[in-house]
């Protein structure tokens, strides 16, 4: 089950994730330990395959708690996977390659205020990566260039300012400049605009698109916002409880979704003049990665199961027992659903 996309990528994939699993054992507090409670294990990422091609923008979408942020952090080597493989530029990522990887793949966070050390000037923040990786060249020239590329002009004006002295949008540009300074091949952005004012969101997204066109950057954008995925992504991967349930070209996935979960997510998207009655709102228990249902993990909340369509097709038993795998239903459009 491979999920190769065509997108706008040229050449092979920059990043490949193969059957990745990440689990957390609940931290046992002193009280729970004394009471003899056993720790629970959360399978935050539960067998994910994903590829990002050179110059491609992939949106990883899903509700909060679906494991998309954990997946991003595991890709960055910040969380240790329980099993599975991350391949970069065709080779498996090993511990000794991590340093080089951390130059080539940069991360941008949701909250630019938190992502910048409040005690460092903007210059220091942007220069830090250069110093860590001992990049050759005039440091201030490289910092200037990165700030200008991120749309902060004239760059010198920002050198000695502290993060709290600039606006939220400018702060996110500083974070992006810090990533660009290292001339990365890929940026993993975790909800890069959801903490910004609506007016600034468009600017930052336009910046990301421009960077892809100018530098051939690959982007993996983690988001809960399918509208954003629609705006910028070449491909969309929808994640539910630690697994990718649907992946394919953005337009195809968003206009002709195959998975009932994707359909439900799209139906709650507000539209101009739209009316919310008659839409299927997800019912049932909210997803809990410590108690993943057997079979299709979506079946307790699935509108198709609730409406009885699954039973008509004779799929109820299979839904409860067999984990659906990703199948290519339309060109490059994969879905993990027994009913599709």
């Amino acid at each position: 089950m491979s999920a190769t996309g065509e997108g706008r990528g040229d050449g092979g994939p920059v990043l490949e994730v193969r059957d990745l699993h990440v689990s957390f054992s609940g931290r046992q507090g002193l009280g729970a330990g004394l009471l003899g409670r056993s720790a629970t294990t959360a399978r935050a990422v539960d067998g994910v395959d994903l590829e990002v091609a050179r110059g491609e923008i992939v949106a990883l979408a899903g509700e909060s708690g679906c494991g998309k942020t954990t997946l991003a952090r595991a890709i960055m080597g910040l969380v240790k996977p329980a099993s599975g493989e991350i391949r970069y530029a065709g080779r498996p990522l090993r511990h000794r390659d991590l340093r080089e990887f951390r130059r080539k793949v940069q991360m941008v966070f949701q909250d630019p205020t938190g992502a910048l050390n409040p005690r460092q000037t903007i210059y220091e923040s942007v220069a830090e990566g250069l110093r860590i990786h001992k990049v050759s060249g005039e440091e201030d020239v490289l910092v200037s260039k990165a700030l200008a590329d991120a749309g902060l002009r004239p760059p010198e004006r920002f050198f000695l300012l502290y993060p709290h002295e600039v606006s939220g949008g400018q702060r996110q540009r500083v974070v992006i400049a810090g990533a660009l300074a290292l001339e990365p091949e890929m940026i993993v952005a975790d909800e890069p605009v959801s903490n910004l004012d609506a007016s600034v969101r468009g600017e930052i997204l336009a910046l990301l698109l421009k960077l892809r066109d100018r530098f051939g950057l690959s982007l993996l954008i983690v988001t809960h916002d399918l509208g954003l995925a629609w705006t910028v992504a070449d491909r969309v991967a929808v994640m539910y409880l630690g697994r990718i349930v649907e992946v394919g070209p953005a337009e195809d996935v968003l206009t002709r979704p195959l998975h009932p979960y994707t359909k439900a997510l799209l139906q709650v998207l507000p539209e101009a003049g739209g009316d919310l009655s008659g839409r299927s709102i997800l019912l049932g228990e909210p997803p809990d990665p410590t108690r993943i249902p057997p079979g299709c993990r979506f079946h307790p909340r699935c509108p198709e199961v609730q409406s009885g369509r699954a039973a008509e097709l004779g799929m109820e038993e299979r839904n409860r027992t067999e984990v659906p795998l990703l199948r290519e239903i339309r060109p490059a459009h994969f879905v993990a659903c027994h009913l599709a």
């Binding site: 130059r103 991360m107 909250d111 910048l116 990566g129 290292l182």
Partner: peptide, 26 residues
């Protein structure tokens, strides 16, 4: 738990330096 600590780590700063340069001063 702050993001700039994670950022520093993600950029390849060693753990002891993350502690000394970012975490402890703050």
């Amino acid at each position: 738990g702050d993001d700039y600590i994670v950022t520093a780590r993600a950029k390849g700063l060693r753990e002891a330096q993350v502690l000394r340069r970012h975490a402890v001063p703050n």
